[in-house]
């Protein structure tokens, strides 16, 4: 009986598995895209206007169409001045990828009067985007197979009543991301 106890104790000792092994190959995956680059080709230009005693707007579509409301009138007859036009940008990135243009809801144009003093600021709002690849898709576009596209930006210039003659400039921050 004493011998049996000893044998049981021996079978209860640690069992060495000794080299039992297995291997597997996992993978790490990443998709590295070409960075998007937007290059300005033209500024958003509302042209020369007359401001009257009534407020008004200049509405410049991203497709280049222009209209005037209220007391605002174009200062030049057609062809006499440089044409007003939307801002234009070229986009380059990964071929075939969709992208999205993000614009602020409104910006402020600052100006200087012809006398050299600060002019009242003007609001530029209702900014719109029209891409060459998807003209009806608003801010969404798609790069062609070579990774290129273009888009234009229009907006509405709000002109208060009775502002002095002045020149105005504004900076439009444009962000382009893969969509």
């Amino acid at each position: 009986m004493k011998r049996a106890v000893l044998l049981l104790a021996a079978t209860g000792s640690p069992a060495i598995a000794g080299g039992l092994s297995s291997s597997a190959i996992g993978t790490a995956q990443a998709e590295v895209a070409v960075p998007l680059v937007a290059t300005r080709e033209a500024d958003l230009d509302f042209g020369a206007i007359f401001a009257t005693t009534a407020p008004g707007t200049v509405i410049l579509g991203a497709d280049g169409t222009a209209s005037y409301t209220g007391g605002v009138r174009p200062a030049c007859v057609p062809g006499a001045c440089g044409p007003l036009h939307p801002a234009a940008f070229a986009v380059a990135g990964e071929g075939g990828r969709a992208y999205l243009v993000t614009l602020p809801t409104a910006i402020t144009a600052t100006g200087t009067t012809t006398a050299g003093s600060p002019a009242p600021p003007l609001a530029v709002a209702e900014l719109t985007v029209r891409t060459a690849s998807r003209p009806a898709a608003g801010p969404g576009g798609q790069l062609d197979a070579t990774g290129h596209d273009r888009f234009e930006v229009g907006g509405t210039l709000h002109v208060p009543a009775g502002i002095p003659a002045a020149g105005y400039r504004a900076i439009i921050p444009v962000m382009v991301t893969y969509g």
């Binding site: 640690p14 069992a15 060495i16 598995a17 000794g18 080299g19 039992l20 092994s21 297995s22 291997s23 597997a24 190959i25 996992g26 993978t27 790490a28 995956q29 990443a30 998709e31 590295v32 895209a33 070409v34 990964e94």
Partner: peptide, 20 residues
């Protein structure tokens, strides 16, 4: 230049050293 879809193998092995 360009973009790429990267796939990198991760070889892992396991060995039983002991069963206690």
């Amino acid at each position: 230049s360009g973009g790429a879809a990267l796939t990198i193998p991760l070889p892992v092995s396991a060995t039983v050293l002991a069963v206690l």
